[in-house]
Nucleic acid binder design. Structure first.
Lengths: 241, 241
DNA sequence: CGGTTAATTGAGACCACTCAACGGCTGTGG
DNA sequence: CCACAGCCGTTGAGTGGTCTCAATTAACCG
């Protein structure tokens, strides 16, 4: 079962047949280097992108040169299912790490959605979840303390990676720089650095090599006020153990 | 032509026939008082809501009792076209002013989308725009100064009201309290108050009665770094003059 | 080993918050 | 008509959070 299938199963039960269909979509993915745009602002994209492996993000650049990251893609995520309706992109999508990416013509996706209603529902579910994540980021960035914000983001990434079986029980490999984190959280990189030190000293998280761990996951979740309901995951029989 | 039709025309040309169909959807809207929930957190909603008149918002309440407003509805806006796919609401939708609201069973919307592809495209366009607005709020709230943030929000509201012919050339009636603004902008109400005073003293905006005006719209737009591309409006012949 | 990117540190300034109090307007009931 | 309550806007004082700029150390790559 592909990563994309694993993710979609959290939203909609899919028959073995449907799963095979989704799996076949992502064969022949190509490798894209780190820090490369998949879609640039101003493009009129004709392809849906599936991130099979690696981390990518949506971002906006402001006139002042500042960057805001307004979305994170982890393995299994699908970018812009309904692309092609809007015309010109008002932001860009770029890789963070090296990624395995499959480009799919949007007509192909639309044909599939017509042919296979469960897949249509699964894809629509995933866009609704994306919207929910956006709302949660807005909430968290606007109303939580900066230490809680960082911890909340880590909890979210952990939950999303767990859904596609890319995380350990108490941590995951974090490929984001402190500057990436800052641009997601609306903070300065320097402040991210200092707050991270506090989180480590309080053992809310630990960091070794590239792994971020929660010594006490319950405690971190409570600290971050993390409630995963906004991810709308229905743990399914047949999913990852 | 109804307000909802006026809004949708900015995304997709609709035949007179399609317009009539949309118009007929919103007959029999009911009046809802100010500060009333249309949908509460935890509900499993079966209806799409159309705000025919008035202001409403999406909001989240945090454990600490703080509120975050994560979306604003103005006349013509449709809430949750794809409702019913997600199950339980992770946030609430409530009125700000007294509103005229039409509730539409989601099956009816789905049937209409099947029967009338242009209407399906128009509604899908509107959900994509909602997502674009969310991304813009995240960007602005994370990376602009507080005075720019407030000005940006005013520019957005003006643009959206203009699309449904509810604004004057240089201003509009603003029914939001400073606390509402604060919860949209991720600021404290006290700070909104003080920054507003600065904006008024610099004549970025003026406020009299309940009207908010831009003495020099170009200047305010530049000050706010407001670029309406994220609203994806294609001004159409046949729309408001 | 040199070059580059990322993480860390310090200092100082300013932004934005909280708490608390006060003023103004409006609708209601006596 | 007036008194009152309640909501909203405004103000002051003081604190803490967060930023910027710049310099330093550490980690990584070829």
């Amino acid at each position: 079962m592909s990563t994309a299938t694993a993710k979609l199963l959290h939203g909609e039960p899919l028959s073995l047949d449907d799963r095979a269909e989704v799996d076949s979509l992502v064969v022949g993915a190509r490798t894209v280097g780190a820090r490369v745009d998949l879609i640039s602002k101003g493009d009129d994209p004709q392809h849906v992108h599936v991130i099979v492996e690696g981390f990518a993000c949506r971002y906006k650049l402001l006139p002042g040169g500042q960057r805001a990251i307004v979305g994170l893609f982890v393995p299994g995520d699908v970018c812009d299912v309904h692309v092609g309706l809007l015309g010109v992109m008002d932001h860009a999508i770029g890789t963070i790490t090296e990624c395995l990416v499959k480009r799919i013509p949007h007509q192909e996706i639309e044909a599939l959605m017509v042919k296979r209603p469960p897949i249509r529902r699964a894809l629509s579910w995933s866009t609704l979840v994306d919207e929910g994540i956006l709302r949660q980021w807005l909430t968290v960035n606007g109303r939580l303390r900066s230490d809680e914000r960082i911890a909340h983001l880590f909890c979210e990434i952990h939950a999303r990676l767990t859904a596609v079986d890319r995380a350990g029980r108490d941590g995951f490999q974090l490929p984001l720089t402190q500057e990436d984190l800052a641009d997601m959280l609306g903070m300065s990189a320097v402040h991210v650095n200092r707050v991270l030190q506090v989180l480590r000293s309080r053992e809310i998280v630990t960091q070794q090599d590239r792994w971020l761990r929660f010594p006490d996951r319950e405690r971190t979740v409570a600290f971050a006020q993390f409630d995963p309901d906004y991810l709308h995951m229905k743990p399914r029989a047949g999913g990852a153990a």
